[in-house]
Amino acid sequence: GLEHMADEEKLPPGWEKRMSRSSGRVYYFNHITNASQWERPSG
Rank of each mutant, 00 (worst) to 15 (best):
R40N: 08
E8F: 02
L2S: 14
M5Q: 12
W38Y: 10
A35S: 13
E16M: 05
K17V: 09
D7R: 07
N34E: 05
E8G: 09
V26W: 11
K17S: 05
M19A: 06
H31R: 10
S36T: 12
E3A: 13
D7P: 10
K17F: 03
P13A: 08
P41L: 02
Y28W: 05
R21S: 12
H4M: 13
E3Q: 11
H31T: 15
L11D: 15
M19K: 10
W15P: 00
K10S: 15
A6G: 11
A35R: 14
N30R: 00
E8H: 09
G43E: 14
Y28E: 00
R25H: 07
S23M: 08
G43V: 12
M19I: 15
Y27R: 02
H31S: 15
E9K: 06
R21A: 14
E8Y: 03
E9W: 05
R21D: 10
L11C: 00
E39S: 04
R21M: 11
A35K: 15
T33Y: 03
L2K: 14
S23G: 10
S22A: 12
H4C: 15
S42T: 13
H31N: 14
L2V: 14
Q37T: 04
H4Y: 09
P12V: 01
M5Y: 12
L11Y: 03
H31K: 11
L11F: 02
Y28F: 05
G43H: 09
S23F: 08
E16I: 09
N34W: 05
I32E: 10
E3L: 08
L11E: 15
I32G: 05
D7K: 08
W15H: 00
E16N: 04
K10D: 15
V26N: 05
P41F: 01
Q37S: 07
G14V: 01
I32H: 10
V26S: 05
R25M: 08
M19F: 15
K17H: 03
M5W: 12
D7A: 10
E8S: 10
G24A: 05
F29N: 00
G43F: 15
Q37C: 06
I32P: 01
L2I: 12
L2G: 13
R40H: 09
S23L: 11
R21I: 13
P13L: 08
Q37I: 04
L2F: 13
Y27W: 05
V26H: 08
P41K: 01
A35H: 15
G14P: 13
G14L: 02
W38H: 06
G24T: 03
L11I: 04
T33W: 04
G1W: 12
S36K: 14
M5T: 12
S23P: 04
H4V: 13
P12L: 03
E16V: 09
A35Q: 15
F29E: 04
F29G: 01
R21N: 11
G14M: 03
M19D: 03
S42G: 13
F29K: 03
Q37A: 04
H31P: 09
H4K: 11
L11A: 01
E9Q: 08
L2Q: 14
R25W: 06
E39M: 05
L2W: 12
G1S: 11
E8D: 14
M5R: 10
D7M: 08
E16P: 00
E39Q: 08
S36V: 15
E16G: 04
R18W: 02
L11Q: 07
S36G: 07
G1K: 13
I32K: 06
Y27L: 02
S23A: 09
R40T: 08
S42A: 10
T33S: 06
E8L: 06
W38K: 05
H31V: 15
H31I: 15
G24V: 03
H31D: 04
P13I: 07
P13T: 06
E9Y: 07
D7V: 09
Q37L: 04
G24N: 08
E3I: 12
P12F: 01
Q37Y: 04
W15L: 00
R25D: 08
D7N: 13
W38L: 08
G24Y: 03
S23C: 07
F29Q: 02
H4F: 12
H4L: 11
Y28H: 00
G43T: 13
V26L: 07
R25V: 07
W15M: 01
N34P: 00
N34C: 15
L2Y: 14
K10T: 11
R40D: 05
Y27C: 11
H4R: 10
L11K: 12
L11P: 15
T33F: 05
E8A: 09
P12D: 02
W15N: 00
F29V: 06
P13Q: 05
P41A: 02
G1V: 13
K10E: 14
S36H: 11
S23H: 09
R18H: 05
R40Q: 07
R18S: 04
S22M: 07
L2T: 14
S22Y: 08
Y28N: 00
E9C: 14
R25I: 06
N30F: 02
P13G: 05
S22P: 10
Y28Q: 00
R25T: 07
E8P: 09
I32F: 12
D7Q: 10
L2H: 14
G24L: 05
W15F: 01
E16S: 07
T33H: 04
G1N: 13
E3V: 13
P12M: 02
Y27F: 10
G24H: 08
P41H: 01
K17R: 11
W38P: 04
S23Q: 09
S23V: 05
W15Y: 02
M5G: 12
S22R: 14
K10G: 13
S42D: 11
V26A: 07
L2C: 15
G14D: 04
P12R: 01
L2E: 14
N30A: 00
E9R: 07
G43S: 14
E39W: 07
R40K: 12
E39K: 04
A35G: 06
E9G: 08
R18M: 05
T33G: 02
Y28M: 00
